[in-house]
């Protein structure tokens, strides 16, 4: 298994854009390729800081140890990171102009530093409404023990 390297993540979403499926080629229900990613404390804390969330459950080891979690955890929105880290550069979510219309996540367990998260991702449905084209994304996140940590759907407007 390849180690996820933050520095090597391809940040140019234009590159190889033609390799990604357009709306016509999305196959609802088909599980897409993804790779498990081990999250570091550094990744968690950068994410938390980016939304100005300095909750001690992410930063203060002593405080977190004494809490009902028994240790440091991630913000409950951290799954945003795995949508991109776990998927390949050819995933249709990276298509320039993809607009997020809505999102729902049900959370069962917190993600902790050092957890290895695997994402089962697919397009579940395709919709045309008021002349616009949309995809429904279906995502299940599991930890290294195989337990589901989070599941839910997203809804994006597609540029093509």
């Amino acid at each position: 298994m390849d180690e996820f390297n933050t520095d090597e993540f391809e940040t140019d979403f234009w590159k190889d854009a033609e390799d990604r499926s357009g709306w016509d080629d999305l196959e609802p229900g088909k599980i897409l390729e993804s790779r498990p990613v081990t999250i570091t404390l550094e990744m968690i804390q950068r994410y938390a800081r980016s939304i100005g969330d300095l909750n001690p459950l992410y930063f203060d080891e002593e405080y977190a140890r004494k809490s009902r979690y028994g240790g440091l955890i991630s913000p409950p929105s951290i799954h945003a990171l795995f949508l991109f880290a776990c998927t390949g550069h050819d995933h249709f979510m990276r298509t320039p102009g993809t607009v997020n219309m809505g999102q729902n996540w049900f959370l069962q367990r917190p993600i902790r530093p050092g957890d290895t998260i695997a994402l089962e991702a697919r397009c579940l449905d395709k919709v045309i409404r008021k002349g616009n084209i949309f995809a429904i994304h279906d995502n299940v996140f599991r930890n290294q023990d195989g337990d589901v940590v989070c599941s839910g759907r997203g809804w994006t407007m597609r540029p093509y």
Partner: peptide, 24 residues
């Protein structure tokens, strides 16, 4: 964008946003 690895040009590329006509 850097923290979540979502570097879609919607979030950083002024030129793209000026030129692009989205739905409708």
């Amino acid at each position: 964008a850097a923290a979540s690895f979502d570097h879609n040009p919607l979030h950083w590329d002024n030129d793209f946003m000026e030129k692009t006509h989205f739905a409708g």
